[in-house]
Design a binder for these strands. Structure first.
Lengths: 170, 170
DNA sequence: TATTGTTATACTCTATAACTATA
DNA sequence: TATAGTTATAGAGTATAACAATA
C-alpha cells in the first residue's frame, strides 16, 4: 500500500540500524555468552565432522571408547552426562555403522564391554585430526594464552556444577 | 549367578575407580568444556527461573522486549539467533500468559510491534533479580576478575562465529 | 534390593519448505 | 521481487517410568 513511501521506509530502516537493539543485558551475562559461544563452536565443529558422518556427540563417544576399551554403557553415560536410555540409540547407530561393538563384559553379564572396530579406529583418527585443527583455530581467535585461561575458567564452572548435576555417588 | 563373588565385584569396582575413565582428550577441549559449562549454568539458572514459570530462552525474549518496546519478531530473531518460525510458538505462549503482546507496527502492516504487559514487566523484574544473583554466584566461582576475563574470551569466540552463522547482511 | 541395558514416551529445541499479506 | 509472520513438519537432544536379566 501507500503510506510506506521509499522515504518513509528509508527513515525507518535508518532508525532501526541506529538503535540496533539493546541486548547489553544479555551480552554482559555469562550464561548467555556461554550459550552463544558454545553454539558457535559446535556448529563450526559439526560442519567439519559432517564429512565423516559424525556429530559432535558421537565423536565424544568414539573418543571415550577408543581410550577406554571395555568401558560399559553406564560408565560412558556418567562420564559424558548422557541418560542411559538415550545412549542406547547412540551406540546402536555406531554399532550399526560398524564403528563400535558391544562385547561380553568380563565380570558382569548384564554389562556390555564397548570397543572400536578397525573402521571405528580409522574414523576416530580422522575425527581427532579435525578436532585438533578446530581447537587450534579457536585458540588462534583467543590470542596468546587465551586457550589455557579459558579452559581454566570453564573448568571452575563445570566442577562447581558437578555436585548437583552428575554424580552424587562419588 | 556365582562368578561375581563379593570379592570379585570389589576388585572390579576398585579397578574402575582407579582408572576412572580417560576423558582427558575431551576435558582439554574448548568445545567440550564450553558445552559442559553451558549446560551446568543453564540447568542452574533454569531451576531458579522455574518459580516464575520461565525458561532461560523465554527470559531472554522478555528482556529484549522490555528494553526495546516496539521491536518486531524478526528483529528479535536475528538478535537472539532464533529461527523465525520457531519464534511464533514462543511469543504465542508469552502472549497467551499475558506477559507480552503483539501490537500494530508504525510503518509496516506486516510486522508486529512487541511490548510487555504490566504483568510481563513484573515478571521480568523478578527474573532479572534472579539472573543478577545467578551471575554473582558464577562470578564468585571464577574468582577475582574471572567474570570479566571469561566474558572477554567468550565474546571473541562469538564474534568470529557471527560472520558465518548469523548476519551476512551487516 | 540394586544395577545394566532396554523400550516406550514425551517434551524442548532446532531446521526447512511453503503459504499469506504486505512492501 | 522481497520481507514479516505463519503453518506444517521433521530431526536432534533430553527426561522419566517401567521392565527383564543379572548382581
Amino acid at each position: 500500500m501507500k503510506n510506506g513511501s521509499a522515504a518513509t521506509r528509508r527513515v525507518q530502516r535508518i532508525a532501526r540500524a541506529a538503535k540496533a537493539l539493546d541486548v547489553a543485558l544479555l551480552e554482559g551475562s555469562l550464561g548467555y555468552m556461554l550459550r552463544r559461544a558454545q553454539l558457535a563452536t559446535f556448529a563450526e565443529f559439526g560442519k567439519e565432522l559432517e564429512a565423516l558422518g559424525l556429530r559432535p556427540g558421537q565423536f565424544g563417544v568414539l573418543a571415550v571408547i577408543g581410550r577406554n576399551p571395555g568401558v560399559t554403557q553406564s560408565e560412558i553415560c556418567t562420564a559424558l552426562g548422557i541418560q542411559r536410555p538415550n545412549f542406547v540409540a547412540v551406540i546402536d547407530e555406531l554399532e550399526g555403522r560398524g564403528l563400535a561393538k558391544r562385547g561380553a563384559a568380563a565380570y558382569d553379564r548384564r554389562a556390555n564391554a564397548l570397543s572400536l572396530t578397525p573402521a571405528g579406529r580409522r574414523v576416530l583418527e580422522r575425527a581427532e585430526l579435525a578436532q585438533r585443527a578446530h581447537e587450534a583455530r579457536l585458540a588462534a581467535r583467543l590470542g596468546p594464552g587465551g586457550q589455557e585461561r579459558l579452559l581454566a575458567l570453564l573448568s571452575r564452572l563445570v566442577e562447581s556444577g558437578r555436585g548437583e548435576t552428575l554424580s552424587e555417588d562419588r
